[in-house]
């Protein structure tokens, strides 16, 4: 990008994807610290506070840029959203609401753990379930990271079904937390 000729094609960078905007390779694994530093230096340049004494057009342009930078940062910062976005960039949409097809094995395992959650009473019970979800999410993340390291030959279908599985796991993790909170208030009554 540093070789961009000084021609008036300014819309290109503003409309480029999040990875190009932050000058990062299209990988799932990214350095959170680096991402944050780039976000800050981009905002230091583009934030509306830098343009408050200029005209409306300049303010508008800066607002547009600053908003775009925040949008990209939010998406890149959240691992799940980042993974879904990578699938999108490779031409595959997640469509979590309509596409709920999951491997039978995965669903069976989920059911077993949901039953365990229904029976969970002690704080140790909840700990064990949470540990399992955590480890599942970590494994899923690692698999996704590996898939997206492969440059052009990414198996996007495989990645997108991993992303959907991950969404399942996140929802399950939320219900574990909710159940734990409910159990706790029940115990203290």
């Amino acid at each position: 990008m540093s070789t961009t000729p000084p021609t008036f094609n300014s819309s290109t960078l503003l409309q480029s994807d999040d990875f190009v905007l932050f000058q990062l390779p299209r990988h799932f694994a990214i350095d959170a610290q680096e991402l944050q530093e780039r976000w800050r230096s981009l905002q230091k340049m583009a934030h509306p506070d830098r343009f408050s004494m200029q005209g409306d057009a300049a303010k508008r342009l800066s607002l547009q840029w600053s908003t775009r930078i925040n949008e990209a940062y939010q998406r890149l910062k959240d691992p799940l959203r980042r993974a879904a976005y990578l699938c999108h960039l490779h031409g595959v949409e997640i469509n979590a609401q309509t596409n709920t097809a999951m491997p039978a094995e995965f669903l069976m395992e989920q059911m077993t753990w949901r039953e365990a959650l229904d029976d969970a009473k002690s704080s140790e019970d909840f700990d064990a379930i949470e540990q399992w979800v955590q480890s599942q999410i970590e494994t899923t993340q690692q698999s996704i990271a590996t898939l997206f390291e492969r440059g052009q030959d990414v198996d996007v279908q495989a990645a997108s079904s991993l992303v959907r599985a991950w969404m399942f796991l996140e929802r399950f993790e939320q219900s574990v937390q909710d159940r734990r909170a409910a159990q706790l208030s029940h115990n203290t009554l």
């Binding site: 008036f8 300014s10 780039r38 340049m45 342009l61």
Partner: peptide
């Protein structure tokens, strides 16, 4: 304002690239 829009947008672009380049050096 109209007559300088393209110039301004390009300068913003250059600024963004500069911000990222500076980052690389850091």
């Amino acid at each position: 304002a109209k007559g300088t829009e393209a110039f301004a947008a390009e300068r913003m672009n250059q600024g963004i690239l500069q911000a990222l380049k500076g980052q690389h050096i850091e």
